[in-house]
Design a protein around this nucleic acid. Structure first.
Lengths: 222, 222
DNA sequence: AGCATTTTTGACCAATCAGTCAAAAATTGA
DNA sequence: TCAATTTTTGACTGATTGGTCAAAAATGCT
């Protein structure tokens, strides 16, 4: 269990032409089912039979589309990472810090609410030390964060916000926004509910936004 | 995999008197080894043979001390939860909010640094919906949080801090402090390091403390 | 020393599960 | 219609692993 290297290269490519209608439907169904099963059980705990079942096909049929459990898992991971990075890319130097971060926080909380399985798969991979996707992450995430860190440092020089370590600021925001997906059950238990509601997520976004914006001096103390 | 009920009741109690020296040593060794293996591999991915190996004994011998994998896992969980709750209990109404929260944040970051495996085991359990420890959590954590929430609401009424949802404040602090243990590899990758250093944890504690204290109005805007 | 109790382990079993394979069924294209 | 291709699956296999058991080894006690 220590995957790496370019994921694309490992994926079953037995096709010559474009994917058929059946292929597109089945692969999409499998990936969706896999996301949920991997999220709920982890990599080792996930059983291919159950993923196939949930996708409405047989296990050998699943293996026909994805040559191995590992490859299927990596496809799921890659999909979640890319979605995860999109809102980060939208932070630009020309933005007002308060607006950029409020938008970023709200998008990430909303993503936690609508894609809890994706977030959990991702969290699981990270907890175990990113064994399947570490190298990819280094190539893809590190340069992106370095770029955004420079933007924040620029904002700090301009006096638009307090002097804060940009990396830790991102860690805190990631942690705070994703905790509602990853540890949603804990939050629900603490709040005495069966499940978090949309209102809970909205309050979460409000609270995180308020603390981060005021706490970093992006907006004047209220 | 949906354990519950009083954990103590399930644990092998074949003893009449107090534990012997050998028992204490071996049980401690096993629990320490188990914590690491469960943290690194998850419940399903953890192999008893490996835990035994790391504890320096044979697998049947491990099963002699803990009757099943599930029971061993629950013992590890229970141990981590109790440690986790200690600093929370220390927050008291007579405290100054800024002092109480700064202390709480620093203790939790330090705990993340010194007990990364415990934190990961715990995170893993929560991600999967707290299947083994959900009920215990409800009985133990919920009342405690309710109590601390009342203290915070009292502080808010006294004008000692901004009106903030106390539950979400705790979620944010838990997430921010534990992210350095749970997702430490990600943080290291982003920072271009192999591993986080003590200095990184100190900066983390400083940053979280600064943002939370200022962001909640516990200290005047600097 | 010698007996009782605790501790330790090799050998084994049964269940689970990723992955294979050959053949059947469905689909496509002329 | 009918042959070529793609899709689907039942039946297997081999490896892994949680847990058992009986017997051996170590320890404690008088």
């Amino acid at each position: 269990m220590e995957g790496q290297e370019l994921i694309r290269a490992q994926i079953s490519k037995r096709r010559q032409g474009p994917p058929t209608r059946i292929q597109r439907i089945n692969e999409a169904r499998i990936l969706e089912a896999a996301e949920e099963i991997f999220a709920l059980n982890g990599y080792s705990g996930a059983v291919l039979e159950r993923i196939a079942e949930r996708a409405g096909i047989s296990k050998p049929n699943l293996l026909y589309y994805f040559k191995s459990k590992k490859i299927l898992y990596q496809e799921v991971l890659e999909h979640t990472v890319e979605t995860w990075l999109v809102p980060l890319e939208e932070i630009e130097e020309s933005d007002e810090p308060a607006e950029a971060f409020e938008r970023y926080i709200r998008i990430k909380v909303e993503y936690s609410r609508t894609h809890p399985f994706a977030s959990k798969v991702w969290a699981n991979e990270l907890i175990h030390g990113a064994p399947h996707i570490g190298r990819y992450l280094k190539r893809r995430l590190q340069p992106l964060i370095d770029e955004k860190a420079r933007i924040i440092e620029h904002w700090i020089k301009q006096g638009k916000m307090d002097p804060i370590d940009p990396y830790h600021l991102f860690f805190i925001i990631w942690a705070a926004t994703q905790t509602y997906a990853d540890f949603g059950e804990q939050a629900a238990i603490v709040k005495g509910k069966k499940q978090l509601t949309k209102a809970d997520f909205d309050t979460a976004a409000d609270t995180i936004t308020a603390i981060v914006l005021k706490g970093t001096g992006m907006v004047g103390a209220g």
